[in-house]
């Protein structure tokens, strides 16, 4: 714990807040600390977590991606047609197609950002509008329910019946989420590429002088984020059993808030998978707890927003301001 506190102060404090929150909710509601509730929390947070770790990689590399949630919707629609074209498809094809399509949309961002030397927020806001507008235009906002059976079938990975007869079930999205989280952790902490991503986000000019290839970094970061967006989109359909073109728009900002809450720095170079998971779970558990305490669902978001605002404002949870923008290493070139 002491090590964690020193090397990852934001994560450590977040963990303390989370434990306190759980303890409080455990006392306030007898349903909170049950296996069933924990399982449903995980089931419901899995898609956000998949997206969050994808976005984390972009943030670490010093970028930002506004377009990923809309990209996930685009992937969902393209998947429906791709699976139909591939004779129905199966899970293997599903992951390959969704991951590849997502990564492809990420590469579009990376190509524009690197090729024309434009900051990522400008490009991803442009692609956000382009992807969403085109999707709504071509689909005319149509919902799709006629999906391959394997895709919309609920798959239970682990189940457990507790003493009172209730079932606690973990579904496929949770397993996929775990794989994505671990893969992202391995990428950014255990590979040379991942460390280069950190270095590139931290000091782009220094990284360039050390021989880090800037284009490669952009393509890996945005490609990874896009791939996670695609896989998250695939899982979202598995949960909701429908494809709705405007179901995911707006989620990008909620996920961004959670990831930044988890200690990832806007501006690059800082952020961890642990903090990212804690940030997402803090928001999810707050909502879940409010629900169990019988608070009106309309009040959830208000309280979540207030929680984040208070968290930012408490001196003990201090998030460093990104270095002054428009100065020094933020700009590319000599």
């Amino acid at each position: 714990m002491r090590n964690l506190l020193r090397s990852h102060p934001t994560e450590a404090r977040l963990l303390v807040v989370l434990v306190a929150l759980c303890a409080g909710l455990g006392i306030g509601s007898d349903q909170f600390l049950t296996l069933g509730n924990a399982a449903s929390l995980l089931n419901n947070s899995s898609v956000n977590l998949i997206w969050a770790v994808g976005l984390l990689v972009v943030l670490i590399a010093g970028g930002i991606d506004i377009s990923f949630a809309v990209a996930a919707s685009v992937v969902q629609y393209l998947c429906v047609y791709a699976f139909a074209g591939l004779g129905g498809g199966n899970w293997l094809i599903g992951f390959l197609v969704a991951g590849a399509l997502g990564a492809g949309l990420g590469f579009v961002n990376a190509g524009l950002i690197h090729g024309f030397r434009v900051i990522s927020i400008v490009i991803t806001i442009a692609t956000f509008n382009a992807y969403f507008g085109l999707l709504m235009f071509f689909t005319s906002g149509r919902f799709l329910y006629d999906l391959p059976g394997w895709w919309s079938r609920r798959i239970i990975i682990v189940e457990h019946q507790s003493a009172d007869g209730r079932w606690a079930e973990l579904t496929l999205p949770v397993a996929v989420m775990l794989v994505c989280v671990i893969a992202t952790w391995a990428l950014i902490n255990r590979t040379s590429t991942g460390r280069q991503l950190y270095a590139f986000g931290d000091n782009p000019e220094g990284a360039r002088r050390a021989g880090v290839k800037v284009a490669t970094m952009q393509f890996i970061a945005f490609g990874w984020c896009g791939m996670m967006a695609g896989i998250g989109g695939l899982m979202q359909v598995n949960i909701t059993r429908e494809v709705v073109p405007n179901a995911l728009i707006g989620r990008e900002l909620d996920v961004l808030a959670a990831v930044v809450l988890g200690g990832a720095r806007l501006g690059g170079g800082r952020g961890s998978v642990l903090g990212c998971v804690l940030g997402v779970m803090l928001v999810a558990i707050t909502q879940n707890g409010l629900n169990l305490l019988g608070v009106s669902p309309y009040a959830f978001k208000m309280i979540v927003g207030a929680t984040i605002l208070i968290a930012i404002s408490t001196a003990s949870l201090r998030f460093g301001r990104a270095p002054v923008r428009g100065h020094g290493t933020a700009r590319k070139g000599h």
């Binding site: 900002l253 930044v260 809450l261 009106s296 309309y298 009040a299 208000m302």
Partner: peptide, 22 residues
Amino acid sequence: IGAHPILVSLAMMIFLRGLGEF
């Protein structure tokens, strides 16, 4: 506090949206 404006305004956005819906 010196917090990043994106984070602060995002939190305010979530709060105001919730308040309005409430």
